[in-house]
Computed example of a mutant assay.
Amino acid sequence: MEKFKIKDEYITLGQFLKYCNAVSSGVEAKVVILEGYVSVNGEVEKRRGKKLRSNDQIEFGNKIYCIE
């Protein structure tokens, strides 16, 4: 599990995927989210604007990311 700190109260799912280098662009983030490849806290999430906060876990591409 990779852990990431964010400086604000939250970060959106699309922004986070770019921030942790899981995707190379916003367009790629949009595609993988809309196609159901990303889970947040164990549930498939199809909203790229989903607000992620401390202790949220994101699963994508056989990796798990955690926000501190």
Rank of each mutant, 00 (worst) to 15 (best):
M1F: 15
E2N: 14
K3D: 01
F4I: 15
K5M: 13
I6N: 08
D8F: 11
D8R: 06
E9A: 13
Y10A: 09
T12K: 05
T12P: 01
T12H: 00
T12F: 07
T12I: 01
G14E: 05
Q15M: 06
F16V: 08
L17C: 09
Y19F: 15
C20F: 13
N21R: 07
A22N: 05
A22M: 08
V23Q: 04
S24V: 07
S25G: 15
G26W: 14
G26K: 13
V27H: 12
V27L: 12
V27Y: 12
V27S: 15
E28I: 15
E28H: 14
A29Q: 03
A29I: 09
K30V: 11
K30F: 14
V31E: 05
V32Y: 10
V32P: 08
I33V: 13
L34H: 13
L34N: 12
G36R: 04
Y37V: 12
Y37S: 12
V40M: 02
V40R: 03
G42R: 06
G42D: 04
V44M: 03
V44G: 04
E45K: 06
K46Y: 11
G49W: 07
G49Y: 05
K50T: 00
K50D: 00
K51T: 03
L52W: 00
R53D: 00
S54V: 01
S54E: 01
N55F: 04
N55T: 05
D56H: 01
Q57S: 09
Q57N: 01
I58F: 12
F60A: 11
F60Q: 06
G61F: 13
G61L: 11
N62F: 14
N62H: 13
K63F: 14
I64D: 00
Y65Q: 04
Y65F: 15
Y65T: 01
I67K: 03
E68W: 03
E68D: 04
